[in-house]
Design a protein around this nucleic acid. Structure first.
Lengths: 365, 365
DNA sequence: GGGGGATGGAGATAGGTTTCTGCAAGGTGA
DNA sequence: TCACCTTGCAGAAACCTATCTCCATCCCCC
């Protein structure tokens, strides 16, 4: 009665839609708001009868606890940010679009399975958007060195987990592929297929993926005694990729096998090979890094390296939520994920026996 | 002084990271919290000197207003939901993955430009996730009839805008393509290219896209006096699409042109045509609906219909935010967006003059 | 028969912000 | 000089929940 009186007195105008609050439930059930809260959240010491009664009344009134009030009280919003550093106006770069899409899909799944929702927040967005949303933690894709967003989040004590090795960012944990192993595996695979001179199509940017992959290529060349043959281009420009592919095949020391680090390289290289009358795989072996399954249906199908963004997205979110909830503080804070080489016609001199067979042990030869 | 005293008394243990609150700023600046709030939010009647001073002190203390408290007080969270109805476990269906990814990208951009952030929330997710996040509004992609999530949101007074015509859902507005016009345009285009019997690859599901497109096809057939030739399959199953494509070309009344309603139909039809020794476009004209640009590089390149998900995502978000902010209550609540036909080799009997040329007026012949 | 533990539940406070109301000082016109 | 308006700012309510503290029983057992 008191609660009801208070309630009526405290709502002189009835602002918005008359949503039922916890007070309304308490009044209707004839109990205190403490009892309602405890009953609905499974806390406190209450007999099952009271719990059931309160739940029933709450259902009847269509009561939904206010997310904002709960967040304010508990300090938990159930929201985690998904951030990607951007190079232009758009929130996502197109070069890694397939990667990002798949990664975001997996991250969303993983978050929801643990009761969290994902908020997409490009790193370049206005600061007011960032401070306007209460985040329990954030996933950062491919953070740049000294990323200001990460620094600010760290200052606020928000856990951050990154996809890709962080430069100098204070992250709680990171997940990344074993890029060196992947490149070495591909080069060995191409050499096994008969390649004598393997070329590389790489980028001019300094992110870890490009850097580690290129370094691995160079060290492999040094190990086997091959002169490096590679072309670099700004990976954000799709046209530049086609030009670089052409340049690579136009060289006097033309390679007889090429690995392309970026998604569109496969079609670009295929087109360039066609222009120069090179048959794939007879005259040119081809592999590129891609998440797109279009390379299963090109003519010929092209062998691709998948970074398995789904696995990464899942792992990143698990690590982040663990950090948020404070579990497993002792387990390793970095995780190196394997990649998948999907072998298709373009990298096999002889017709393959089985359609798709990832090599179990690349170093068998 | 009073505020400071209050503050110290009210924080006996200093729970988490000592984040500066508005009270700390007020105390440090020697003003009241009202003045701080007004100064930072550009409200109230304050001389510029005071405003500047407060802002400076707030900056010095690294003050960030609590998003949760602001949301609780104002009733606005700055968050809008992005929901896609799901058919399985995963948050997104793979059939429309390219569509969804592009649409989400554009929606994210549009929302951020207006100071909102996007939360991804599959419709099938547990109820507690939905009620745990304060949403100012929601975009629903392709809602099913009597969608329970939409009904619940409507009950709570949360504005909902849908991508795709809503069945019986109480949405504030919707945006959709002009599917009939698109199909009619494609059929006319194929007929212009010399098709005598045009087949359709369609779905068994009852969503509006499939329904409207199929109906348009049937009415076109009736109008021009052609017997309909079509195969239906469950669009969620990619293998079923390949089988249906094969079935369509195996019919005794084999069509000499086919339009496929779903993204993978192009490659499926191309593979089937190859199996039956049909040359494209000489023996078979091909068009499919797809957002993927892989059809620019297939052999031959395939004409595609783009639904322009980017434009739709932008429009949907604009409409939603308008509804949230209460502007433009009189403007139309539904918006029909045009599609783009990207004409390539597969739908032209004679080699094209220009590489890519969307037909300006399809009824020119 | 009374101390003490377990049970069931109420009261009050905190969490941080926005905003309505109101107050004091100073200026202005009659 | 006084009423009145404007300026500059302070106080306090309200938003809604979760939880800490505490009180009243009731029962058990010495």
């Amino acid at each position: 009665m008191t609660a009801a009186g208070n309630h009526q007195a405290s709502r002189p105008s009835g602002r918005r839609l008359e949503r039922a609050g916890i007070r309304d439930v308490a009044a209707a059930a004839g109990v205190s708001i403490t009892t309602v809260s405890d009953a609905l959240n499974g806390k406190g010491r209450l007999p099952e009868a009271t719990r059931r009664h309160v739940r029933e009344v709450a259902d009847r009134l269509g009561y939904r606890p206010s997310a904002a009030a709960r967040t304010l009280r508990t300090g938990r919003s159930g929201l985690i940010g998904l951030t990607v550093t951007t190079y232009g106006e758009e929130p996502f770069t197109f070069t890694e679009f397939a990667y990002f899409a798949e990664m975001a899909r997996a991250a969303t799944s993983a978050a929801l399975a643990r009761g969290y929702a994902l908020v997409i927040l490009p790193a370049s967005s206005r600061h007011d958007v960032w401070s306007n949303v209460a985040l329990d933690g954030t996933v950062v894709i491919d953070p740049s060195d000294h990323d200001p967003v990460v620094a600010e989040l760290a200052r606020q004590g928000v856990p951050v987990v990154s996809d890709g090795r962080p430069g100098n960012c204070p992250v709680h944990a990171w997940v990344d592929n074993d890029h060196e192993a992947a490149v070495l595996g591909i080069l060995d695979h191409l050499a096994d297929a008969g390649a004598r001179r393997i070329g590389l199509l790489t980028g001019t940017s300094t992110d870890t993926y490009t850097r580690l992959s290129t370094t691995a290529y160079l060290s492999w060349c040094e190990r086997v005694g091959q002169e490096p043959v590679y072309e670099s281009y700004p990976a954000h420009d799709p046209c530049a990729g086609a030009v670089a592919a052409d340049r690579l095949l136009a060289r006097p020391d033309r390679p007889d096998a090429v690995y392309g680090l970026f998604d569109p390289n496969g079609t670009d290289l295929l087109a360039a090979a066609r222009r120069y009358g090179l048959r794939v795989p007879e005259d040119l072996l081809l592999v590129c890094c891609s998440e797109s399954d279009v390379y299963a249906t090109t003519e010929p199908p092209i062998t691709t390296l998948s970074l398995k963004p789904g696995r990464i997205g899942t792992a990143v979110v698990q690590l982040l939520i663990d950090a948020i909830e404070g579990v497993g503080g002792t387990q390793p804070v970095q995780q190196v994920m394997p990649t998948d080489l999907i072998v298709r016609t373009s990298s096999q001199r002889r017709p393959p026996r089985t359609k798709v067979s990832p090599p179990r042990s690349p170093g068998a030869g």
